[in-house]
Write a protein that binds this DNA or RNA. Structure first.
Lengths: 337, 337
DNA sequence: CTGTTAGCGCATTCAA
DNA sequence: TTGAATGCGCTAACAG
């Protein structure tokens, strides 16, 4: 049985006044007499009246809902990011719809469609590793749904984004290793789609040059992030005649897999072979053999900054203005453990 | 500028037919002539028509949205659970609103209110550790919003729930330790609100009895899950005259903190002191000194089962039926590492 | 200060 | 087989 919830109509009837008076009274409209206002509020309280938001959403063309699309929530990076997003959203009386692409483009598209149908006021997205084209996001312009990308940002100019520039930290990472006596520094990079800007590797190259260390292309391998693939990449490095004494790894998870594998091979971590990685995931603190340094990418802050930007866009939109594309870039930081 | 999206009205006008005909044609209503139906669909496609869901939600009193309230997403347990939830939700054309209570009752209440306002069709919840009363959930009955609790379930009979019974695994855990020669088995339990049913400890007691090991209350301490508090609890255990040789710990995160602390004290993990815990979080696989065993609580499955139950409730509701309270209990499993 | 009216987009009942 | 009319609950323009 559907319970019938009270409406302003009901209140109006009981008070024998008009619906609009009730509506205005409830909104503290200045032109309402104090007496009627009180009466209305009293009656509303008695009836336990609550406005039907679906009606309001419908009428106002606004749902106070933002959609968040990201690869997965298992990575601490993303769960931290969503904390930032949620904190700001709640503060602004918004609520968060979530969708995990699981790094699958089709899923990502479905989620976008679903959120579009639900008429979210805006979307925050970190693209999947298989996302190369972003039409599914671009079409949202036709629906006036602003999109802000964060962290995993598509490499096109006409988007709003918040991300962390990893170039300087990559340089720092190499500098740090060199200072510690390393000359053979290898690099395990991630899948190409997540590396378009190549900040990590460019920093690596430039820092080697700066330190007058010749680049050895054999020392640069890549993984698709799967365990097996990472192990293969690692094996390749171990086959190089002059083995590396340090490896910079795409992110902490890959680093953990690599370290785990290396230990099975009786390699002494951070003695025979040192690891530096990206993300600085808290779980590494529990490890006995963590990377000796990791690049902090400030997920919580990326989340809040992206959400701020999104709210700005939503406001501009309802004010009928157009905003130029904004690309916020935070500075990463090499954290030595 | 608000773009004006096409409506059925627009289609009707262009085709010089009535709105209702368009509506019916779009829904493949049997009473519509094939020709007009085709024409309507063609026009709809041309105009890129898409139904305004907010209007439909409003009219149908249904939003195809479920709310998920849980303490936090950082714990792998909950991010796995939400995977299960999301998979089922998407499969049923639903979308997921998320809210993290951060183990704070006030936040939890706010989230419930917010989701209520958004007229979610149902809610899945794992309560915060400070939640002792559940009026904020119970009031949802007045709004016909069904609630299914999972994992952290309030200890009252009149709720729907899905959870994992930890009693048997607790017995197994003790048995396992005894088989491995332990006689002094300590216990670090969690905050009382998360322990109402006391399955863990009851299993512990019963298993000790079964193994003819006298209970030593000094070996039972508790933590509020914070690092400091866990350390204090651990210190207490180390002060007992006959020290324990094994500790069963409330969950993996507490276990990690305890292990970390123990190592600082030069205790040899799983030699001087063995650890068994609950949750079986994947991250423990990366550890060099993980608990030797952990109780798997099947978060993904809890998520899917809870969602199934919720959908059943939603269906019953729209069919005007009432459902008896259902409490699904899964069996946990002790996983030896 | 308050009431009347219209309309958001759609589904649906009642007539034709 | 189709159209006209109604209403979901609320806001707001317009009129007193």
């Amino acid at each position: 049985m559907e319970k019938k919830l009270p409406t302003i109509k009901e209140i109006a009837k009981r008070l024998s006044i008009s619906i609009s008076t009730v509506s205005r009274a409830l909104h503290d409209h200045p032109s309402i007499g104090l007496r009627t206002k009180m009466a209305v509020k009293k009656m509303a309280a008695e009836l336990n009246y609550e406005p039907n938001q679906t009606a309001i959403f419908f009428k106002q063309r606004k749902t106070f809902t933002i959609g968040v699309i990201l690869p997965n929530l298992r990575e601490e990076f993303f769960s931290s990011a969503i904390n930032g997003i949620e904190d700001l959203a709640i503060g602004n009386n918004y609520i968060v719809l979530i969708g995990q692409s699981r790094d699958d483009l089709e899923r990502e598209k479905n989620i976008v469609e679903s959120m579009k149908k639900h008429r979210v006021d805006g979307i925050l997205a970190s693209i999947s590793k298989s996302t190369t084209r972003i039409e599914h996001f671009e079409q949202l312009k036709n629906y006036d749904i602003p999109v802000v990308f964060f962290d995993r940002v598509p490499d096109v100019p006409e988007v709003h984004s918040v991300s962390c520039n990893l170039y300087h930290s990559s340089v720092e990472a190499v500098d740090f290793l060199v200072r510690n006596g390393h000359k053979r520094i290898a690099y395990i990079q991630g899948p190409p789609t997540l590396n378009i800007k190549n900040e990590r590797l460019n920093g690596y190259y430039d820092a080697l040059k700066k330190n007058k260390i010749p680049v050895d292309e054999h020392l640069i391998v890549s993984t698709d992030l799967s365990v097996e693939n990472t192990q293969k990449a690692f094996d390749k490095l171990m086959l190089v005649k002059k083995k590396p004494t340090a490896i910079i790894v795409f992110n902490d998870y890959v680093a953990l897999d690599a370290i785990h594998y290396a230990r099975q091979k009786n390699i002494r971590i951070n003695k025979d072979l040192s690891f530096v990685s990206y993300a600085n995931a808290p779980l590494t603190h529990y490890l006995d053999y963590p990377p000796i340094a990791s690049v902090e990418q400030f997920p919580y802050e990326q989340g809040t900054r992206a959400t701020e930007l999104l709210f700005k866009l939503i406001d501009q939109k309802s004010a009928g203005q157009e905003m130029p594309y904004e690309n916020v870039v935070l500075k990463s930081e090499l954290i030595i453990h």
